[in-house]
Design a binder for these strands. Sequence first.
DNA 1: GCTATTTGTTCAGTGGTTGAATTATTTGGC
DNA 2: GCCAAATAATTCAACCACTGAACAAATAGC
Lengths: 412, 412
Amino acid sequence: MTRPAVPAAAARQGSLREHNLALVLGRIAAADRPPSRADLAARTGLTRATVSAVVEDLLLGRLVSEVEPAPRAGAGRPARGLVLAGDGPAGLGLEVNVDYLAACVVDLAGRVRHHTVERADLRPVPPAEALDRLTALAAAARADAAGQDLTLAGAALAVPGLVDDAGLVRLAPNLGWRDVPVPALLARHPALTERVPGVPALTVDNEANLAALGELHAGPPGPASFLHISGEVGIGAGIVLHGTLYRGARGWSGEIGHIPVRPDGRPCRCGGRGCLERYAGQEAVLAAAGLAGADLPGDRAADRLAELARAGDGAALAALRDAGTALGVAVAGVVNLLDLDTVVLGGGYAPLEPWLRPPVLAEVSRRVLTAAWSPVTVRPAVLGTQAAAVGAAGSVVRRIIAHPAGWLAHRS
Amino acid sequence: MTRPAVPAAAARQGSLREHNLALVLGRIAAADRPPSRADLAARTGLTRATVSAVVEDLLLGRLVSEVEPAPRAGAGRPARGLVLAGDGPAGLGLEVNVDYLAACVVDLAGRVRHHTVERADLRPVPPAEALDRLTALAAAARADAAGQDLTLAGAALAVPGLVDDAGLVRLAPNLGWRDVPVPALLARHPALTERVPGVPALTVDNEANLAALGELHAGPPGPASFLHISGEVGIGAGIVLHGTLYRGARGWSGEIGHIPVRPDGRPCRCGGRGCLERYAGQEAVLAAAGLAGADLPGDRAADRLAELARAGDGAALAALRDAGTALGVAVAGVVNLLDLDTVVLGGGYAPLEPWLRPPVLAEVSRRVLTAAWSPVTVRPAVLGTQAAAVGAAGSVVRRIIAHPAGWLAHRS
DNA sequence: GCTATTTGTTCAGTGGTTGAATTATTTGGC
DNA sequence: GCCAAATAATTCAACCACTGAACAAATAGC
């Protein structure tokens, strides 16, 4: 990617320290074994003197802690290992979805330290009440975190819909929400509005975006470019380019469900025709598999379909093959456009991956111009249905790791 | 876009100056009237002392020059205006295409200071000979630049094909090139390999990518997100996200011509079926308009078609409507995925924009989920067929503006 | 116990920014 | 025509963060 044309802000003396704090902390986070100060100096290019000074700040701010010297062969003073603190700041991840509410806490190292799911059909519930119930989960999560010596530094909420910069949910069709001002509705709950400078108290984002972030951080460290497809009632996608989530010009990227795959095909509720959702969305697949009337809750439907496919049910297998082909056509277009090397099947698609992958790969290898040189990997998501909530919590701690200076200033 | 997780390199004292050089130079480049040092201090947040020191470096390095004080109302010492130097470094842009070679020189301010096009059918010409002929144009451009007190700081070459990081042209189907090692073939031409530290002597890139860059810098300054579609024999696209060109995981993004628009439709030479190129590519449109046998050179074909359409020719109008519809289906998918606010019709599509825009817009407004809140603009490219060569030259000078320290180190 | 080795800290030196004081150059009032 | 006010740009001491070298600390091997 070409670098941005114009830097935004003046660099002053303190900017150096801010940058190097992030550099050192990022290396500690990405290391596979606890690095010593000397390791960090060698790997970052800073001197040992500077690394010591920077690490001192990080230790004082409870972002890292020292661990026992790792046994090492040869002579020399033993190194003190540095790890991300397990008792420092943590992120609160929340999710409102069609048939459940969820809350989780993730610590700096990315470990899930708390996780609750409350099943409930939220379609008939007014938004304000749904958010009220969510704050009960949030309060419990906060109490659990406090008991583990964790400080919640911020929260992120995943919603299955289009969210603008201010946190207004413009449209969440499957939830029946329209123009819901989430931050205003949550403003009276102190658990969600306590301010830590440099860390937003609450951000609201699209569920598919946050699920992609969860997948990014659950995988190996380092930049990656992939498409994370969440197959639910609708089909959403999160786009990760070179290790950063791409949100679009206005934050509404990833509406892969409305990519046309049969321009003159089945009409869609969006007003178009032949959208992917009408061929590979939950309703379409269940109908084709003969499960139309079963009225299963969202996450059960995918498991039921997987059972049938595993048992060799003809209708289920045909339904999955057709859905995979439609998905493959859309994915081929995306890969031709964006040159991604990986496609992750997430959400409801994850358990169905064994049956979806072959037709998707077939379409991709047939239709992608560069498929011959650069194979495209299709794999299931490693995080299951928790992806969005975990990704939401992870987005809070990743922001601290990327910009530790704000957190440190707050603690001094 | 979420910020990157881990900074890459250590920040030392000199990094501050590097950053602030780029900051100040970028503001001078983006300003609409020559700013004074005091203006720059106010706008960047640096002190006037620092701005003066930074500007001193830029003046010494011939990147900016002072102009007469702009007349100002009120009392006070008159300000000295700062502009990008018209006699400093410049970029050399080159292009090999199916039926022409081009060379141009662009100065720091983005002005085109030299431009030559040599028409020739290059399909029967071996790559080495085509590149030889190109170096003749490059030498003339270099001489002309020297006569205008410009120093060529680097060159960029636009090719209608897939290019890898090393400059190897993997495939340029319409030119008949495959695995052409362009940098090696140009290595014996000193005019193209003279090294300026910090500025690559020669980069090779896809024509559609460079055309999009040309369009980005020809437009108003500031970040923009758009899709620039070059409609030639093939259809390529350059993707600009938040003011930066997105090249893809391996550099092969933008193959919009092979997005499926009729999955079971006409077979394509890529091996797929129903690719956009088979419905909106030059061949398909000319055939539908009854011009199949005319065998016009690429850029004349579009003009001829525009003439016919202007005269009300039924077949031409129908062909353009159908092509626009196919294009609109593909664009709707792209906008749903990437949430772009602007689509630029470039290359051969530019003169046809009056007839292509209505069907494209119709499909987009019908199929894009967020079309109701956020209109998508479809407009013709402001640079015509020169876009790729001008964009190539511009990419060289933009790199200097974004990273002036390298250039300054070289001159000291 | 001595030496080699590696880790981590201390400290003078340097580069770059800040902020206040100073110089430079104009307009406008008297 | 001269002086005050205003704005632009430079100068300079102070400060901050990083560098590099010297030094202290802690271990293994002989």
